[in-house]
Every structure is written in structure tokens, then in C-alpha cells.
Design a protein around this nucleic acid. Sequence first.
DNA 1: CGTAACATTGACCCCTCTCAAGTGCCGTGG
DNA 2: CCACGGCACTTGAGAGGGGTCAATGTTACG
Lengths: 266, 266
Amino acid sequence: MNRKSDLLAPLFRKLSVRGNVAMEERRALLDAASEPKELPAGRAIVREGDRPSGATLVAHGLAARVNVLGNGGRTITAFHIAGDFVDLHSSLLEMMDHTAETLTRVVIVHFPHSALRRMTEKYPKLARLLWLSTLIDSAVDRRRLIVSGRMPALNHMAHLFMEHLSRARLVGTADRDSCDFPVKQADLADAMGISAVHVNRTLQDLRARNMVEWQNGRLRVLDEAGLRHLAEFDDTFLHLERDQRSSAHVGGKPGSLFHTLDEIGS
Amino acid sequence: MNRKSDLLAPLFRKLSVRGNVAMEERRALLDAASEPKELPAGRAIVREGDRPSGATLVAHGLAARVNVLGNGGRTITAFHIAGDFVDLHSSLLEMMDHTAETLTRVVIVHFPHSALRRMTEKYPKLARLLWLSTLIDSAVDRRRLIVSGRMPALNHMAHLFMEHLSRARLVGTADRDSCDFPVKQADLADAMGISAVHVNRTLQDLRARNMVEWQNGRLRVLDEAGLRHLAEFDDTFLHLERDQRSSAHVGGKPGSLFHTLDEIGS
DNA sequence: CGTAACATTGACCCCTCTCAAGTGCCGTGG
DNA sequence: CCACGGCACTTGAGAGGGGTCAATGTTACG
């Protein structure tokens, strides 16, 4: 049990940034979670076209949201670190429009939709926080869309690194200036939409500028201000601020609409 | 009143594709809507940094989701047509992370958060459909992320056109092979992340292949199969299929969790 | 110590960019 | 009715970021 709660720590940490999560709510989440499962690297967690019966949380390790193009090219549209759900949206959308696969050894925890439903029914504040993180994920996607379409490789990579570091900090898995990022250059290429060769060159550029180190699967940011500047990185879009309504009072009795439309978004 | 219901027709149409919308629910939506407002082209509907007090629906005309980069470059990450909300997510995210501005004369209808809350409280099925379209919007964003990062201009443009036509069909504002698309080439450039010059050349290519016509703000698709092929366009991601749970029975008494977590997503 | 997987480098090419000039359309004012 | 200016669209030429192909280092590990 203690083991399981450790596994959910990153999620709790992330949710707590945006609003309080009561002990009771933590327990409810723990109860809804299945036994952890371990997957080796390179395994699919869910596949495009699947209709998952629950949501899967990454508890440890690194996974990626992957789409395959007609020409066989692989595209990574997001990295999932500890504390990220890979398919929370499948409950409404039903069919997965992308694959989630492990990039390293990964520990996952599964939450059946039925259990989630029961839990969120009872704890609307918690439901609200989960939806909020869902919306934040979309906000991050929008950000990536801008960056990927507009910035040259150097700036784009700076943004990717800063985003990764910020998100790792959010769930408490980062040191002051470094965090795990155990991917291959080819993975970065798939994530940035450039060739692996050019990833290599861009990386060298960033190193030559003494802005980052990246070896043995660990990212170290040497010049954060410089990186932020290059990437025009502003973590406002991660919505790190505390959400007024969730953290304190909130008139959200279960069943009130407070936990429905008002907490979603376009 | 009749006028107002005409304005909501595209929204109803879109929602109906995914689940039934009862007469009573339509009335509720109509009641929640403010008087329509008309804006000229080039006006901001909401600005980045705003904290809107409600959600705004485009009832007529064309708007765009815009972000401004440091170098002054404008990025369009989405076009909003009739039936699209421009800021539904602001209710949870609170602060807008992008601007929505009109590209033509636009008629908007405003829904105060409070009214939406009351309405969705009473009609969970309706709430569910609204959230669903919210999630579909994110799915479309993910799709754009893939396309924009991976495809050369010609294929990218093919995708943009097909997506626009499909969405226009969805809300009933398209003929068999054509729809309004009153933007400048410079807007297309901002949307695709390429220069206006190259938009022009790409457009000429597409025309030379007899695949599209585009004049006087109207798009006509001459070779849909060809376009779809170029763009690897598969409108599955628009989730046109009927949602089982929403359309028929559904055990969703108001207040049940059915309309909470289970209907959101990551 | 051989092999496989990943990182690095070099050479050459193409897509898209920028700069810059030219064309066409349309609304306004004379 | 025509001249004019503005705006959008076109076209041309040269430059550059990033792509591909292919070879060479470099580890990690059986």
C-alpha cells in the first residue's frame, strides 16, 4: 500500500499545485488504482484504435504519445512522465487516436473508468483537478503547435528542454537544474519533426553555447535564462498558479454543475 | 427569438452529430445565450491574458485563434467557424493563453459561465456533448501538430483545406464540394507556419493539379480523393460517429458521475 | 573482442525563406 | 468617368536551414 502511494506521489504533487487534495481524496484515488504493472522499454501501453476501459497513469519512467504517418514516419507529440495520464480522454472520445508507448522501463497504474466515475462522483473537487490537468495538457499541445511550426531547430529544442524540465519540477522529479530525460536523439527528432542528424547538430550548438548538458539520459540546464530566452519560454501555459475555486471553499457539493461544464474548456 | 435559434443552428447541428439534443435542451441553451453581437473584421473577441466571465460562440463568420511570437510574427493555431466556441476552456483555465480575433464580420453569442453552469447542471447529457466537442477540439489540435511538423507545404495545405471543408460540412454550412473560407493568403501563411510567398506558390500547385479552386473567399474542392490522399486525411479524428451513451438511453441522472470524469480526457 | 546500437561527421541537394519588383483589383475623390 | 492609392496577389532571384545518404566513431555488452 505504501508502495502504491509512492507511485501516485507525482500525480498528487501535480494536482496539489493547482488545488488542495485532501487525505480522503488521496485515499479514494489509491483505492481506485489497480496494482502497478511494469513494462519494458518499447512497449505499447495503448494503441491507436483501442477503446480503453480505463485510464492509465505513468507512475515511473518515460512514455510517449506516438502517431505513425503513411510513409512509416513516427511522430512523437508528447512525452509522458511520472504523474501523467496517457489516455484520460479516451473515456469520452472512446477511441484512441494515437498510441502511447514506453521509451524506458515504465511502471503504470490503471484506473478503470467505473472506479473513476464513482470516485469523481463522490469528490467533485478532485474531479475538477483531474479535468483541469486535462485542459492544461491541451494548452501545452497548443503551445507545441506554435513552437513547432514557427521556430527553427535551435529554439525549438530549447523549448522542448525547458518544457520537460518544468514539468519534471512540477511533479518533483527534478533537481534544481537537471532531470531525467532518457531518450535517444532519434526520439528527439521524432518529437521535433526534424531529422536525427539535425538533432545532433542542434544539440552540439546548444552545448557549444554552454546552455545544456545531456548525457546518460540526464538533462542538465546550465543557462536557464538563456534557454528561456531562445525558446520564448513562459511557463504561464502550464498554469502553475493555484486555482482559486479548487483550493479553498468551493461550493461544489457532489452533483452540482460546478464540476461539469464550468470546469472544462474548448 | 427565431433569429437567435438560427444563430445556434450550427452548434445544434454539430452536437446532434454526436448525440441527440432534445427540444428542451435546445431551449435551455437558447435561454442561456445573450443577445447576439456583431463585430467587424479584425477585432479581438478575447485577448490573451483575459479572464472571461463566460464562453463565446461564433454564430456567423470566421474567427481565428491567434498567438503572437516575440519577433512580432502572428500564428494562427485554429480557425473558428459558426458553431465553434472560442474560449470554452477559459472557465477552468481562467486565463486565456491566446487571442481570438475576427477575420470577417462575425456574429457572436455569449454564454455567461453562471448560466452554463445552471444549464449543464440540469442537462448532463448536454454538458457531456459540450465537453465532447471540447475534447474533439484538442484531438484536432493534436492532428494539426502532426501535420504541421511533418508534412511539406503542399500536403499540409491539402490537409488544412480538407479539415476546413469537413468542419463546415459538420455544421451544415458547406455545399457538396465547397464552403466559405474568406481569408487572405497571409492568413493561411500564419496558419501553416510558412511564408505568404510560399502559400501562393503552393496554392498554384494545388490549382495546377486541378484539386482545388479558391477565389472570392470561397473554397471548392475539385478532387477530394486526391486531396485526402495528399494530406493522409482521415476524418476519424473529428469523431463523427454517434456517441453511444449520449444518443440513446444513458443512465445519466443529473449529478451522477457519468457527466464528470468519465467524459473528459487527457 | 565482436557486434549491435547509438552518436557524430561530411557532402550534396531541395524546400522554403527573404528581398524586391510587378500586376491586378477596387474604392475614393476629382 | 478617370486617376489614384492601397491592398492583395504574383513572380523572380539568390540564400539558407534542414534533409538524405553514407561513412566513421564510440560505447555497452554478451
